[in-house]
Design a protein around this nucleic acid. Structure first.
Length: 637
DNA sequence: GCGATCAGCT
DNA sequence: CACAGCTGATCGC
């Protein structure tokens, strides 16, 4: 949870992600994303009153964040004070002291943060230097090099300070499987379950927060279905999400919630009360997205863990891992780094000390040769940090075990011609049913009328009919759901027109079930219909190429990701037996790494190594020598 | 009655 | 496998 106080040393007249106390005096406000722990004070009466009397104070955020914020009535009064900004478009913001009339300008650029829909980092450029407020973020190793506005020409911008999402800045959280790997594990588990029969359903036990949407869209796309959720209204201008969620309960994948949903699940009921028509009990499994982390040398990297007869945890993280953060920081090399989160069990002092080592002046000037890349990243000296595990805390040339191809999850996100119902179940769950799965499972489900939770939960249903009119076809990728652009009304109408063909199996829920849901979506509730816009979500930073995931299925319930992915900070590797792993033997670098290594050279004078130089280098590495290329010439300055 | 804070829970 | 947010109790205004 963020404990950032709201203000940055360099630009104390603006406030970010905190809106109480001293922040009430700010000249401008910034909201990085729509999570409550970043919105403290945002609905406070004092701030509301200030806005009422101010002519210049505004709240700046992304279009999607604005949409999500205003979906909550408690924040509706912000409507006229929000200035949504385009991503990656430097914008000059006036900072006016309304008492004295004094005015200052600052340039802000929104950078996609990969944390939840609409989440951004703020890059500020002004008279006190460049500062980066990361908000909360999940970026893969190598992503920083692809963020154009962190660069000036071919060089990394001089960043004075980074205000950092340090949630997992602790060596305990060294590695978290990449988003893609986690997604594959979940797709595999879900696919193998719901393909057994139409009575086999999945409940995604997600928390009440934005950030799971890419899961819904990818599942929806993969299995040509929609995910049942409590409400669609927040997504009404985001067709890419809207098209994969529904309030129609007759689907095999649910992410609905109820205050007593765990109880419901124990009683073999879905939170929405949905059951089968013919009395056949549903076969429900729950999948709880949870953060899983691994030490540097931990080989156990299961992304799915079975926790009960019908319960699973699936690896999932909104935040960058320790190594991902280190990669990010070692690329930017800011002068100062301030943590905005203290990891559980750590102190501010500990985290600050660890972060100091990543600052420009503390880092050693030695560059270590990277055989396959340019001399982009320098390395930090291994600090004398007190290790709490047998994991090595910091990457070293001689500590990295060879990453074996251990991926046991079949590639599922591939060409669309392949059936989602593929292979035998890898899960040691209950025996497969002989019922053949068809696309249309609608008739197997009805309302469970004894369910007492209809009143509140179904208020969106009638609206959903309307909203589902605007579904679109297309292949979603996770990275689509963290950034935005606006659609014009005409584009939106095109999308609406194109939707009818792909909703053949989707029938109005109230028509099928006789729902008594009152009409809650009158025009009055949305008086600005004529002016409504549509948000579309565009590809963001990462450009992950298809990776070689041609692994086999396990015969246990444990799924493992391919290892070695996203690893960029280690310059060379040596197998524990002493055998060098040369580049040609290494795993293919991920698409992100490949591009990050070559796109933005920070040391222009660098050149490609010759074969004999490489040989020498490997010999030195094998003998454990430190390999020093050159002093000085930091690429990041 | 409202907001802030905290414990407890998930 | 530890993030984000809900509920309810308590307190102060």
């Amino acid at each position: 949870m963020s404990s950032f106080a709201g203000r940055m040393k360099e630009y104390p007249t603006i406030s970010l992600d905190r809106f109480d106390k001293e922040n009430l005096h700010a000249r401008a406000y910034f909201l990085s994303h729509c999570h409550k722990d970043h919105m403290k004070g945002l609905k406070g009466p004092l701030l509301r009153r200030k806005l009422h009397f101010s002519r210049t104070v505004r709240l700046y955020c992304s279009f999607v964040t604005k949409e999500l914020l205003l979906n909550n009535q408690k924040y509706a009064f912000w409507e006229e004070y929000i200035v949504p900004l385009e991503l990656e478009s430097p914008t000059q913001i006036p900072l006016v002291d309304e008492a004295s009339g004094e005015k200052e300008e600052i340039v802000v650029t929104l950078l996609p943060a990969g944390h939840c829909p609409g989440s951004v980092m703020f890059l500020f450029e002004g008279s006190r230097g460049n500062v980066l407020y990361t908000g909360d973020f999940r970026l893969a190793a190598g992503d920083a090099s692809r963020i154009e506005h962190l660069h000036s020409g071919s060089r990394v911008k001089d960043i004075q300070s980074v205000y950092l999402d340090s949630t997992f800045y602790d060596p305990r959280f060294y590695q978290i499987p990449t988003r893609e790997v986690c997604l594959r594990g979940i797709l595999e588990l879900v696919g193998n379950w719901i393909s057994q029969s139409s009575y086999h359903v999945v409940w995604l036990n997600c928390k009440a927060a934005y950030g799971y949407e890419y899961l819904f869209t990818n599942l929806g796309e993969e299995f040509n279905t929609q995910i049942h959720v409590n409400s669609l209204s927040m997504f009404k201008k985001m067709p890419e999400i809207l098209s994969y969620v529904t309030t129609d309960r007759r689907t095999q994948i649910h992410a609905c919630r109820h205050p007593k949903d765990d109880e419901y699940f124990q009683g073999n009921r879905l939170p929405c009360g949905c059951t089968a028509t013919d009395g056949t009990p549903l076969r429900i499994i729950s999948i709880k997205p949870s953060t899983m982390w691994f030490g540097e040398r931990t080989k156990k990297t299961n992304v799915i863990i079975k926790t009960g007869a019908s319960s699973f945890r699936a690896c999932f993280s909104f935040h960058s891992s320790y190594s991902e953060i280190k990669d990010f920081l070692s690329y930017l090399k800011p002068v100062n780094i301030y943590p905005s989160v203290i990891p559980i069990g750590r102190t501010l002092t500990e985290v600050s000390q660890l972060l100091k080592l990543m600052c420009r002046n503390q880092s050693h000037q030695a560059l270590i040769y990277k055989p396959l890349g340019v001399l982009k990243r320098s390395r930090v000296e291994r600090p004398t940090y007190d290790s709490d595990t047998d994991d090595e805390l910091f990457d070293r040339l001689d500590m990295e075990p060879v990453r074996k191809k251990m991926g046991l999850i079949q590639e599922v996100k591939k060409d669309k011609s392949q059936s989602p119902q593929r292979t035998a179940s890898p899960l040691s769950v209950e025996e497969p049913s002989s019922v053949t799965v068809t696309q249309s499972v609608a008739h197997n489900y009805v309302d469970c009328t004894e369910s007492n939770d209809e009143e509140e939960d179904n208020e969106e249903e009638d609206k959903s009919k309307e909203l589902e009119e605007s579904r679109k076809s297309g292949s979603p990728k996770w990275e689509d759901f963290f950034t935005t652009e606006m659609l014009t009304d005409s584009q939106n109408s095109i999308k609406s027109q194109s939707q009818s063909c792909c909703s053949a199996a989707s029938t109005s829920p109230s028509r099928m079930t006789g729902s008594q849901t009152p009409e809650l979506f009158s025009d009055e509730e949305n008086p600005h219909n004529a002016e409504t816009f549509s948000l579309t979500l565009s590809a963001s930073v990462s450009n992950h190429s298809s990776q070689n995931m041609d692994s086999c299925l396990p015969d246990t319930e444990i799924l493992r990701p391919q290892q070695g992915e996203g690893e960029t900070s280690v310059t060379s590797r040596k197998e524990e037996g002493g055998c060098l792993m040369v580049p040609s033997e290494r795993e293919e670098p991920s698409g992100s790494q490949a591009s990050s290594d070559f796109d933005v050279p920070c040391t222009p004078e660098s050149r490609a190594p010759q074969a004999d130089e490489l040989l020498q280098l490997y010999r030195k590495l094998a003998s454990g020598e430190e390999v020093l290329i050159r002093k000085g010439s930091q690429g990041s300055v």
